[in-house]
Simulated assay, not measured.
Amino acid sequence: MRRCLFVLSLTSMSFAAHVNAADISIKPGLWEVTTTSDLLNFASQIPAEQMNSLNALAKEYGFDVPEINNGAAKSTTCITQEMAQQKILPGAVQNQAGCSVKKVTQNGNYYHMAFTCANTELNGNGTAEGSFTNAETFSGVTHFSGSIQNTPVNEQANVNGKWLANSCENTKTSK
């Protein structure tokens, strides 16, 4: 069960940042994305051997496991000039962990999307919404209701992103 909770938390991180910002020019460079949720509080209770298995599982889904402390997962990602011109937010992914975006709406700096997950790990529906404060910060929340390995779950994750630097060189980044 902990493995699946971890996958859901990683999925929440990716969807919370999967929208084009209509009225904001996103700054290219190094970004930090912080996700907080009750589920992430369990990460410190996972034995090292299990954590290694979770890291391997996350890599299967295209993630690098971020640093997790006190219920918060912090990761960094690089936004290229091309991504910034296309207004792709930090951490943006499609079809991550077998989930797909169904509907995206935008109104100024605010975004809202609905997504569906249908696989052996996650089965259910969710939403992600948030807004850009400026070209260097965004915040949002992701909700998911469904099941994880046939165990009912109703989870929420808060996501915040901030621009750190112009250059991503010599910096290890997470997806």
Rank of each mutant, 00 (worst) to 15 (best):
F132V: 00
V104S: 08
P152R: 09
T76W: 04
H143P: 04
A48N: 12
V104H: 07
G62Y: 06
H18L: 13
C4N: 14
C4Q: 08
P28H: 05
L57Q: 13
L89K: 05
T137I: 10
E155F: 06
T80M: 04
T80P: 01
K103L: 15
N95M: 12
I24L: 10
A84R: 04
N134D: 10
A72P: 06
T171Y: 12
C168R: 07
A114N: 08
Q149L: 11
V104F: 09
A135G: 08
A84F: 00
T36R: 04
F115L: 07
A118K: 15
I88F: 01
K74H: 12
A56P: 06
C4D: 10
T105N: 13
H143L: 06
T120A: 13
Q86M: 11
S174R: 07
T137P: 04
F6D: 03
W31R: 01
K59R: 14
R3D: 14
K103G: 13
N160K: 10
S100I: 12
K59W: 10
F132P: 00
A21N: 09
R2T: 15
V7D: 01
I46A: 03
V7T: 09
C99Y: 00
S167A: 12
H18I: 14
A17T: 10
S12F: 03
F63K: 02
T151H: 12
V153I: 07
S167N: 14
T77W: 00
S100G: 07
T34I: 11
N123V: 07
M113S: 04
A48M: 13
T11A: 09
S100Y: 14
G71Q: 03
K175Y: 07
Q149T: 13
S9Q: 02
K87G: 09
S37C: 06
E49A: 15
T35I: 03
C78E: 01
N154G: 09
V33P: 00
N95F: 11
S75I: 05
K87N: 15
S14D: 00
G71W: 03
I24Y: 12
S53R: 08
D38V: 08
N123E: 09
A135W: 07
N160Y: 10
K102M: 10
T120V: 12
A84Y: 02
A84M: 04
T77A: 05
A58P: 06
G29V: 03
A21P: 05
N125T: 10
T171E: 08
